[in-house]
């Protein structure tokens, strides 16, 4: 097991890398080729207007459903990743509760077109104005800015796989019971990521990666917005929001 030996060999790191890449390929939700092919499919002005005319409740519910779908793939990614299921269940829950949304935000850069500042949403590419009825313009713009900045790194699929594994396996999350075990897995993933970047002459991106605080701040803003929405529409949240979404963010 990758978690048992204090010093992992190159072969073990290579094995972990292959395992993370495979887990990612199997759980990436949308194929990059398909997302690229659809890049020119943007919502028409009428379609954007129709989204803008939806009630705040309906738009929130739609977004909560799309986020929940994306999170289910992240849970599956974690489960297939070497070492994750060897952690105690408390720590699996802590890591997913804190990191699943962060991984979704990083994965979003694959579905983002920097050229026209649009993101793939419900079948076509949408600009930030489509989400107007949510009443969270500042948060939406921050998320778009974040996706734009990540796109400038030109991540490969393999880089996203290892980077998101590191977003998830973070030993500084509060309430971990077996911090040492998480730390060992995190160290091995860091070695795997750096080893891969060295092989592909991409070490320069290490200095350009988003700071951990940036992702944390976006997730915090999302939870704050949900809190305000819940105060206005407690019954909607209770009755129609996906249970997994409520469990993670309420």
């Amino acid at each position: 097991s990758i978690l048992e030996s204090p010093n992992s060999s190159v072969t073990e790191i290579e094995h972990l890398t292959q395992n993370v890449l495979k887990s990612y390929r199997e759980t990436c939700q949308l194929r990059l080729e398909d997302l690229q092919l659809l890049r020119l499919e943007t919502f028409s002005w009428e379609e954007v207007r129709s989204y803008q005319k939806k009630s705040m409740e309906e738009m929130w519910e739609r977004c909560a459903c799309r986020i929940t779908e994306a999170i289910q793939y992240v849970v599956e990614f974690a489960k297939r990743m070497g070492g994750f299921m060897e952690l105690c269940q408390n720590d699996q829950i802590v890591l997913l509760k804190a990191g699943a949304m962060e991984v979704v935000l990083v994965r979003m850069c694959r579905a983002f077109n920097s050229e026209n500042r649009t993101v793939f949403f419900e079948g076509k590419y949408a600009g930030p104005e489509l989400f107007k009825s949510l009443g969270c313009n500042e948060l939406i713009n921050s998320i778009f800015d974040f996706a734009h900045s990540l796109c400038s790194l030109h991540f490969s699929e393999n880089e996203i796989a290892l980077f998101t594994a590191l977003v998830l396996i973070n030993s500084s999350r509060p309430w971990l019971q077996e911090k040492d075990k998480v730390e060992r897995l995190q160290n091995n993933l860091e070695l795997a990521f750096k080893h891969m970047l060295r092989k592909t002459h991409r070490e320069s991106i290490l200095a350009k990666l988003p700071p951990k605080g940036k992702l944390r701040s976006l997730c915090y803003q999302h939870m704050e917005k949900l809190r305000s929405f819940r105060q206005m529409y407690p019954i909607i949240v209770h009755a129609v929001f996906p249970p997994l979404y409520k469990e993670l963010f309420s």
């Binding site: 849970v75 489960k79 297939r80 269940q89 408390n90 829950i93 997913l96 997994l244 469990e247 993670l248």
Partner: peptide
């Protein structure tokens, strides 16, 4: 924690889907 996160707990207990 597991008690408060029953769905996540269930997803983690299920085998690979």
């Amino acid at each position: 924690l597991q008690e408060k996160h029953r769905i996540l707990h269930k997803l983690l207990q299920n085998g690979n889907s």
